[in-house]
Design a protein around this nucleic acid. Structure first.
Lengths: 225, 225
DNA sequence: TATCTTTGCGTCAGATTAACACAAAGAGTA
DNA sequence: TACTCTTTGTGTTAATCTGACGCAAAGATA
């Protein structure tokens, strides 16, 4: 299908800030480019829109084919339109961010495997294109979102303990949060449910296992960490 | 310049939810379409991106040429990509919202004049395209934003009174707010400055005139209405 | 049984907020 | 001038929320 107005449109792409949390570290997934421009530089994964694709379709395609991931939390972030953001020509990027549990996704071990890697968000290399800016904005959005909406569980296993959730928040917000006050706020918000089970194996007291409360009314949720 | 990858791109446009506040009413600017599709229906103003234009450029062009407006507050909202949102073919819209003071902008009295009109946001007709959705999202964003960031003054005159600001908040948030508590929060936030002058002419006590504090550090601002 | 660490639960003072009282200012009117 | 009516500016108080912290229960080890 041709565009129905006169001038030649810019290229249209999505870029993805894929966040993962593992071993008390928040990481982002980067791709090592094998072609110009920005050959050998690390960039956010992305792709051009294909015929009839919606943004989320393109994102899912990238997540599936390049990274072997299915069913991840995805949110549109912002559209970037600096004319010179891609040296090949005018290209517009509709940036998204994704939250995944790295334990659940095995990065596809294909030919790409060596070109994809998790990076601690505090130890990022300089990225190609305008991806530094996109990443910073994604991180800011994640930090803002998690303080008032329960997206944290997207990064954890189905069952998780209170100390695990607590550490996740401290890690994402890069601040220390009083353990006991955190517990109270989270429990008051009713966004998690105590399963009655306990996480076994640790040396000390075995913490309760919680699960996310899926019946939570979307608008009733409000924490202020 | 041609796009540097293989397939034919969708059309790219911006749509604008232009909010105005006047006489204790929050309004949005609508355009009456004179062509198919959606002939004779009201829609948000918008335009296709022209060569080398950035989103904000296109927005400014629409505001200037169709509405005769300059220098308005503008913020990117969201990008809409439903494949059938435009019956003419695939078109992507990067929606923005704008805040203007209707008293300061005279809607251009050209051939378009009869086709442009302010509508009370509570009395909107059914809009063409997917503009109902875009508008609702814009309204939601405005409501959310105004509770934590001082954008209200964009809708008012340079000098305004506390009751005027108070009414604006009540109108936008569609709720009643205790006058005295509101005053305290706003003053504590230091985002407005008492000019010492008073608004004359009213029958009763003459209220103080305030102005926006432009030296306010962007990140220090935080109200919770 | 004692010790060490982690986890769960509770307390309390200080800060914030909501609800409300009241006086001052301005204009009209007897 | 004195009184009324309405609006605006300021303060008070009780309820609520938040941050800081104490302490005991649970589990493993010595």
């Amino acid at each position: 299908m041709k565009p129905f107005h006169s001038y030649q449109n810019p290229s249209l792409a999505v870029d993805l800030a894929v966040f993962g949390y593992s071993k008390q570290t928040l990481s982002v997934l980067l791709l090592n480019r094998k072609e110009e421009p920005f050959k050998d530089r690390w960039v956010l994964p992305g792709a051009f829109l294909q015929m009839e694709e919606r943004f989320k379709d393109t994102c899912s395609r990238v997540l599936k084919t390049k990274l072997g991931m299915d069913d991840v939390y995805l949110e549109q972030l912002y559209s970037f339109d600096e004319p010179d953001r891609d040296p090949r020509g005018r290209a517009i990027s509709v940036a998204h961010y994704a939250l995944v549990n790295p334990a659940r996704v095995a990065i596809a071990a294909g030919s790409m495997a060596n070109d994809v890697s998790w990076f601690n968000i505090n130890e990022l290399p300089a990225l190609g294109f305008d991806h530094d800016i996109i990443f910073q904005q994604a991180l800011q959005r994640l930090r803002s979102k998690i303080t008032y909406f329960p997206v944290g569980f997207e990064l954890l296993d189905d069952l998780f303990t209170m100390p695990e959730l607590h550490e996740l928040y401290e890690c994402i917000l890069d601040t220390s949060i009083d353990r006991r006050n955190f517990r109270r706020k989270i429990l008051d918000s009713e966004y998690i449910i105590n399963t009655g089970k306990k996480r076994e194996g640790s040396q000390n007291r075995h913490p309760d296992l919680y699960k996310f409360n899926k019946k939570l009314k979307k608008n009733s949720f409000q924490i202020n960490i």
